[in-house]
C-alpha cells in the first residue's frame, strides 16, 4: 500500500523525461521500481512525481561497440544482464552479480540503472561496475556527462548524479586478453542483499603472473569501494594461493566496515578477505583460461 499521492508520467523520449523531471518538485525516475517502490511502500520516499522511463526503448539495449566497449542500457534488467551471452563471456563478474540480485522475480523487473542510481550500499552490481572501471553516462538538461564508477558512489543512497540527471547507460570498457572475472557474495539470508559482495577482475600475463587486478567490494561499508591495497599486493605476483591469500587479507584495509544485525564490523571485515580470496582465485583461474 502506498498512501501518499503522486503524479505519474511515462514519456517516450529521454528529453521529455528530463524535462518532466525538471518541472517536478522532487520527482524521481522510475525504472524497474524495485528500489524505489519498496521505499515508497514504507513511506520512506514520497516523491511528488514519478517519471517512468520504460517507454524509452533505447535505454533497454545491451550492445557492444566497435572498440569492444559493452554498453548496458539503464533499463536492462538483472535478468537480461545475467542471461546475456556477451556479458557472460566478457564480463562474467557482472553477469554473476546480476544473477545474485534478490530473487528471480526481482531480477525480472529490477534494472541495473535503478540499482546503481539508488546506491544501496548492499546492492550487488556496484561491485563489478567498480571493478571493471565502468563509466556511467548521465544525461541531463545540459546534455551528456560521463562519470567514472569510482566517482559515482558517494555515500549510502547518494551518487554523483545531479538533480534531474538520468543514468542512461553503463559503459564497460573492453577488457584485455587473458582477463577473467568473478563475483561472489555472502548474502543476507532474509533481505537477499549482499552482506559482503566482491567482484574481482584479473589480467594475467602469458606466464601466468598477475599483470593487473581490480577488486570491487559492496555491502561491507557505507559505499562500495575498490580494495586498492589488495589490488597492489596481488599485482606482479604469480597469483598462487599464497599470494592471493596475502592480498585478500588486505581487501578491507583502510575501510570502516558496517555493523548491523546481519554481521558485526569485525565479521564483515573477515568476510571481505574471505570473499576477496575466493573471487580472486576464480578470476585468476578464468584469466588463465
Amino acid at each position: 500500500m502506498i498512501t501518499h499521492p503522486f503524479s505519474y508520467q511515462a514519456p517516450s523520449t529521454i528529453e521529455e523525461a528530463i524535462a518532466t523531471l525538471g518541472r517536478s518538485r522532487d520527482g524521481k525516475v522510475l525504472a524497474g521500481g524495485h528500489s524505489l517502490l519498496p521505499l515508497m511502500k514504507l513511506g520512506l520516499a514520497q516523491p511528488d512525481t514519478l517519471v517512468d522511463i520504460r517507454k524509452i526503448a533505447s535505454l533497454r539495449d545491451i550492445r557492444a561497440e566497435a572498440d569492444g566497449t559493452i554498453v548496458v542500457g539503464t533499463l536492462a534488467t538483472h535478468r537480461s544482464i545475467a542471461e546475456d551471452r556477451t556479458i557472460g563471456a566478457k564480463l562474467a563478474a557482472l553477469a554473476e552479480a546480476a544473477a545474485a540480485v534478490g530473487d528471480p522475480q526481482v531480477r525480472s523487473r529490477g534494472t541495473i540503472g535503478g540499482s546503481l542510481a539508488h546506491a544501496d550500499p548492499a546492492a550487488d552490481e556496484p561491485a563489478p561496475t567498480l571493478a571493471f572501471d565502468a563509466i556511467i553516462r548521465a544525461i541531463g538538461s545540459k546534455g551528456k556527462r560521463d562519470i567514472p564508477a569510482r566517482e559515482f558512489f558517494k555515500a549510502p543512497f547518494e551518487t554523483a548524479l545531479a538533480p534531474g540527471e538520468i543514468a542512461a547507460e553503463i559503459r564497460f570498457p573492453a577488457q584485455p586478453g587473458r582477463t577473467g572475472s568473478a563475483y561472489l557474495k555472502f548474502r543476507h539470508p532474509a533481505s537477499r542483499f549482499a552482506v559482503v559482495g566482491v567482484a574481482a577482475v584479473v589480467t594475467a600475463k602469458a606466464d601466468g603472473t598477475i599483470e593487473r587486478a581490480a577488486i570491487g567490494v559492496t555491502g561491507a561499508a557505507e559505499a562500495p569501494f575498490r580494495a586498492t591495497a589488495a589490488e597492489r599486493a596481488i599485482t606482479g605476483t604469480k597469483g598462487d594461493a599464497k599470494a592471493i591469500a596475502a592480498a585478500a587479507a588486505k581487501a578491507a584495509e583502510g575501510m570502516t566496515t558496517l555493523s548491523d544485525l546481519a554481521a558485526s564490523s569485525e565479521y564483515r571485515r573477515h568476510l571481505v578477505s574471505v570473499y576477496a580470496k575466493r573471487a580472486l582465485e576464480r578470476a585468476t583461474q578464468r584469466a588463465r583460461g
Partner: peptide, 18 residues
Amino acid sequence: TVLVDGRATKSCTILAVQ
C-alpha cells in the same frame, strides 16, 4: 507473484500504471 509479459513479477512491487 504474477506473470507480467511472461515474466514472474511480484505484483506488490509494481504500480498498476506500469
